[in-house]
């Protein structure tokens, strides 16, 4: 039996650090894109004419009904076959963004639907048009009200981002695996990776709490 020996970890820090960097970059990019796309999809589902609304609803339904891993494989390995060759990192970001945008869209949609109709009436009575009412009154309130739920999705996204290792991206988990294949020290390096995820999540939670507090004050 081999005891735990973490003294070996610093030696491999460059590789682990690079993995951490890719996890942060891919997660951050996917978080921003999934929120922006989520707002867009929610608006389309609620307000767009049927020619736009139904395809988007179908797309959302398809993405909710399949695993993220399969979606990544389709984007990275599948699309090449029809001549669309997307690099692994971009495939990962696109896959994560689309996957989470669908859930975000549903949260935003519910957030908008939950708003009191009096808000819209007040805006319309002042002379705001339908879209102006959405842009200035409805959407900002829905965004504020959905901060906790979207925050939970982003914590999930950070953890799920490890799945892009399956299309060969050396993010945190994948880097740990690479180091382990060299050192045969799975426990030390998996625990190191776990600790780094905890730290990332602590930072993310602190940011989310800050946003929630700020939003709470302006209500």
């Amino acid at each position: 039996m081999q005891g735990l020996d973490f003294s070996i970890v610093p030696e491999y820090w460059p590789l682990i650090g690079k993995g951490l960097w890719w996890t942060v970059v891919i997660s951050a990019a996917s978080a921003v894109l999934s929120i922006v796309a989520g707002i867009g999809f929610a608006l389309v589902v609620l307000y767009a004419p049927p020619v736009l609304r139904y395809p988007v609803r179908l797309f959302m339904w398809l993405f909710m009904g399949t695993p993220l891993l399969l979606q990544l494989f389709l984007i990275y390995f599948g699309l090449v076959q029809v001549g669309i060759d997307i690099p692994a990192v971009w495939s990962g970001i696109i896959g994560l963004s689309l996957h989470f945008s669908v859930y975000n869209a549903d949260i935003f949609r519910a957030g908008i639907a939950a708003l009191d109709g009096g808000q819209t009436e007040a805006a319309r009575s002042l002379g705001f048009g339908a879209w102006q009412t959405r842009v200035y009154i409805v959407v900002p309130q829905a965004l504020r009200n959905t901060v906790p739920a979207i925050g939970n999705m982003m914590i999930a996204l950070l953890k799920e981002s490890s799945i892009v290792s399956m299309i060969g991206i050396a993010e945190l988990v994948h880097s740990a695996q690479l180091v382990i294949s060299e050192t045969y020290r799975p426990f030390e390096f998996y625990l190191t990776a776990a600790a780094l995820y905890y730290i990332l999540n602590l930072v993310l939670e602190a940011v989310l709490r800050g946003i929630e507090r700020k939003v709470e004050l302006s209500r």
């Binding site: 009096g118 009436e121 007040a122 309130q141 504020r144 302006s218």
Partner: peptide, 15 residues
């Protein structure tokens, strides 16, 4: 824009 309306439940914009 030329008619002001005041509602029973105020309907101020909370944000």
């Amino acid at each position: 824009q030329q008619m002001g309306m005041v509602f029973q439940h105020f309907n101020l914009f909370p944000h």
